[in-house]
Write a protein that binds this DNA or RNA. Sequence first.
DNA 1: TCTGGGGTCCTAGGACCC
DNA 2: TCTGGGGTCCTAGGACCC
Length: 419
Amino acid sequence: MVGRATILHADLDAFYASVEQLLDPALRCRPIAVGGSADGGVVLAASYEAKAHGVRGGMSGWQAKRLCPTLRFVRGHFAEYQRLADGVMAVLHDVTPEVQRISIDEAFLDLSGSTHLFGEPRVIAALLRRRVREELGLPISVGIARTKHLAKIASQVAKPDGLVVVEPDEERRFLDPLPVSLVWGVGPVTEQRLADWGIRTIGDLARTPAPEVERLLGHAVGTRLNALARNDDPRRVVTPDRARSVSAQSAFGRRSPAPDLVREVLSHLADRVASRLRAKNRAGRTVTVTVRFSGMRSVTRSVTLSAPIATTLTLTELAEQLTWQALDGRDRADAEISLLAVSVSNLSHQHAVQLELPIPPEDPHRPGSTQGAARWALDRSVDAVCRRFGRRAVGYLPAAMPRTASVPDEFRELAEHEL
DNA sequence: TCTGGGGTCCTAGGACCC
DNA sequence: TCTGGGGTCCTAGGACCC
């Protein structure tokens, strides 16, 4: 193995919760959770003090409170999250332009061109951590290694608020005792499947013959895992691609799928998706709806059109058709649903004038009789008003007031990928 | 009192074409 | 008429990531 340890992975610790503790000193060193609403709702993020009690993101508020009775719920300051995370990224950019941001609070850096200016990677990491702490008030963990995969594992091991450098000649010794769940791509299902075969550590995995792992987990996962466990990772630090799909979902507890409810939720979701597409002059040919039933089982129905769409009303109508398709053949009186999602994929760039050509009459999924051009014009006017006066100023009536939203739109926006 | 939201990639079967 | 292969697109489901 050749090469130096010059890939850096930086990961803010319990990011949303750390920001809240920064903004309100009374919350420091205390178990807190950022909730969808003041009384909890769902846990969007937990501080390390709360994590110590088993509190995790995605957990319901009551469940978290049971695990940690002193847990304090705070409402999120979502705009601050974006501002501070962008500030952190700016600090990272000060040592190299080779920055690959992979989420709001996490990035890879390639330091191979920076060491002659700033010193050894370990020195650069210490500098970055100090600057993020001093200038933004936030703890950040850093891992450094020869590959992205290894750097990422190193930063996980470094948490909280630490630095781990894995030199090339230490890699095996570092990796072998670690649990397989630290490998990128090994989730709960794969972890269990591997455990059934006695494979618990990365060392176990590395010693297992490749064909065996492939037989266990399928071709793609198997070969990737083998390469990773053997620490053979060719991935480079690159600027991320544009998104390949746009989606929005809404969970609303158990409800029976009354047409009014379905229409209200879908039009809100379709509006979010379609307006994002239009804002970037994009459109998509494939529309997918996900319906989740009580018990978490979910079903998808999709359709691929002959021409891309980005119109709220057209997307709403297609989504409605697909939803009823998904519910077809079930006893609708019994079938309670807990989530609806709308996704558009097969994206293409559109000149503004091309947007929303009417769907051709021969298309079996051609919705309604309203001309696409008229809908396009209407959407454009609505978009313009929203740009001037904010998203809530105007919209299709059902979309304007989502009775069911469990999480504020500001939170959703943090998770959106660049289109 | 079941479990948020926005994404990516893989698999497998079928349709269709050459 | 029956037999091939290979390639591409579409649909549905599922695991995983942050």
